[in-house]
Computed example of a mutant assay.
Amino acid sequence: MARYHELLRFGLVGGFNAATYFGLYAGGVLIGVPYLLSSFLAFVLSASLGYWLHEHWTFKGGAPSVRGWLGWLAAQALATGLNLLLLAIAVDGLGADKILAQLVLLPVTPAATYLVGRRWVFSKA
Results as ranks from 00 to 15, higher is better:
residue 41 L to T: 11
residue 80 T to I: 13
residue 61 G to H: 02
residue 82 L to E: 05
residue 2 A to K: 14
residue 108 V to C: 01
residue 103 L to Q: 09
residue 64 P to G: 04
residue 40 F to W: 11
residue 75 A to L: 10
residue 35 Y to G: 08
residue 44 V to R: 03
residue 107 P to F: 06
residue 84 L to P: 06
residue 40 F to C: 08
residue 109 T to N: 02
residue 58 T to P: 01
residue 105 L to P: 06
residue 106 L to A: 00
residue 109 T to S: 09
residue 94 L to H: 11
residue 51 Y to E: 10
residue 45 L to W: 02
residue 89 I to V: 13
residue 71 G to N: 10
residue 16 F to N: 10
residue 62 G to L: 12
residue 99 I to R: 15
residue 64 P to N: 05
residue 115 L to P: 05
residue 103 L to K: 15
residue 112 A to P: 01
residue 41 L to M: 09
residue 81 G to L: 06
residue 36 L to F: 12
residue 28 G to E: 04
residue 95 G to D: 04
residue 23 G to T: 11
residue 108 V to T: 05
residue 50 G to K: 04
residue 32 G to Y: 10
residue 50 G to D: 13
residue 89 I to H: 07
residue 2 A to C: 10
residue 60 K to I: 04
residue 97 D to P: 11
residue 101 A to K: 02
residue 22 F to L: 13
residue 37 L to C: 10
residue 34 P to Q: 02
residue 107 P to Y: 13
residue 3 R to H: 15
residue 42 A to H: 05
residue 25 Y to N: 11
residue 51 Y to T: 04
residue 59 F to P: 00
residue 93 G to W: 04
residue 105 L to Q: 03
residue 116 V to T: 03
residue 42 A to D: 01
residue 65 S to R: 08
residue 54 H to C: 11
residue 67 R to S: 14
residue 120 W to Q: 06
residue 111 A to T: 09
residue 104 V to A: 02
residue 37 L to V: 15
residue 65 S to F: 00
residue 123 S to C: 10
residue 72 W to S: 05
residue 92 D to Q: 09
residue 119 R to H: 08
residue 93 G to V: 01
residue 54 H to L: 13
residue 28 G to L: 09
residue 32 G to D: 08
residue 45 L to T: 13
residue 36 L to P: 06
residue 22 F to K: 07
residue 31 I to L: 12
residue 97 D to L: 03
residue 118 R to M: 02
residue 45 L to I: 10
residue 67 R to K: 15
residue 11 G to H: 10
residue 83 N to T: 03
residue 44 V to G: 08
residue 108 V to S: 01
residue 77 A to P: 14
residue 34 P to D: 08
residue 4 Y to F: 15
residue 53 L to T: 04
